[in-house]
């Protein structure tokens, strides 16, 4: 589909009839004469992407919205009936699976994002000034965040294995008794949160380093001349200037953390473990759909989840607006 559309794209300028004829702007030679042709080309260039977004994103979203109002269940070609907001009522009164999943999603995200922001910022300040070996360090930073999440899950399963893992072996030297880690109901979610911190702190650092490199030197220099110490310069000069980058990084990371799936599913399996101990909203919705074929209820959970994510993004953006104003 996309190939043929871009094929028409190639032919478009040739079959272009009478450019800019009915536009008064055509009189202004320099800037205006291309306007008509530009406008047509603009939409031609955009149409494959817009078609893609419409067909594979907007339409499915509307489909999900519609599905959430039905009792679709079981086989995909079994008929379904509209049941109004029944699914939403079911989800919002479900204190066994839905609300605990909300709690885990929020806990996981807040814990991971706060740690990643603080550590990422500290690391960015540490790496900010050039030094020999910066290239190597940047490469090392890329490894956790580009590594396949399922493989990352597997490597931590090996390290954290309760009986044969190196983690308990090393803890033994410190006199700490062996831990269950991912084998325990209580420790699983915090451990996975720390793995997320290991994997995504480098991303925050790279974003902050990019932001720091665009900042002017003068304000910090001026503060130094005025006698501001390291902490004062960081808190009152660098951090406020870095705020836009900080907020963008926070929004992007929070959105991805809320949707974490691969590593939870790879290490704990369907349902987030025997006691649903790492079942976040994403894992829950996934299980409802593909393990239980509860399409209607799953769609309702997904609609609520999406609204929740949009709310978080709006909230963070609003907070940033106040800060920079």
């Amino acid at each position: 589909m996309s190939v043929t559309t871009s094929g028409t794209l190639g032919r478009a300028p040739v079959a272009d009839p009478a450019p800019a004829s009915r536009r008064p702007a055509g009189r202004r030679r320099r800037a205006g004469s291309f306007a008509g042709e530009n406008r047509r080309l603009k939409w031609l260039m955009l149409s494959p992407a817009l078609g893609f977004v419409g067909l594979l994103i907007v339409f499915p979203l509307v489909f999900t919205l519609n599905l959430s109002l039905t009792d679709a269940f079981g086989a995909v070609n079994a008929g379904s009936q509209h049941v109004g907001l029944l699914n939403f009522g079911d989800a919002l009164t479900d204190t066994r699976r839905f609300w605990p999943a909300v709690g885990r999603t929020v806990g996981f995200t807040v814990g991971a994002v706060v740690l990643e922001t603080v550590l990422g910022l500290a690391l960015a300040v540490l790496l900010r000034r050039p030094f020999r070996g910066m290239r190597v360090v940047r490469t090392v930073l890329m490894v956790p965040l580009l590594a396949t999440p399922v493989a990352v899950g597997i490597l931590w399963l090996l390290i954290l294995d309760p009986t044969n893992g190196i983690a308990n072996h090393l803890l033994g030297y410190l006199g700490v008794p062996p831990q269950e880690f991912l084998g325990s109901v209580r420790q699983s979610l915090p451990v996975l949160m720390l793995i997320d911190v290991w994997q995504w702190t480098p991303m925050m650092t790279l974003l902050f380093l990019a932001g720091l490199s665009t900042l002017p030197e003068e304000p910090e220099e001026a503060a130094r001349v005025d006698g501001a110490g390291v902490w004062q310069r960081f808190w009152f000069v660098i951090l406020p200037m870095l705020a836009p980058t900080l907020i963008t990084a926070l929004v992007l990371r929070a959105v991805d953390a809320l949707k974490t799936f691969d590593i939870l599913y790879a290490t704990k399996g369907p349902g987030g473990g025997s006691d649903f101990e790492v079942e976040t909203l994403n894992v829950y919705a996934y299980g409802l759909t593909f393990d239980y074929q509860e399409y209607g209820l799953a769609a309702a959970v997904l609609v609520l989840f999406t609204i929740f994510i949009v709310g978080v993004v709006a909230l963070l953006r609003r907070g940033s607006g106040k800060e920079s104003a």
Partner: peptide, 14 residues
């Protein structure tokens, strides 16, 4: 970027 992939996966699969 915001939309959870599962919410597309359900209709796609369907």
């Amino acid at each position: 970027r915001i939309v959870p992939a599962v919410s597309l996966l359900v209709p796609w699969y369907y």
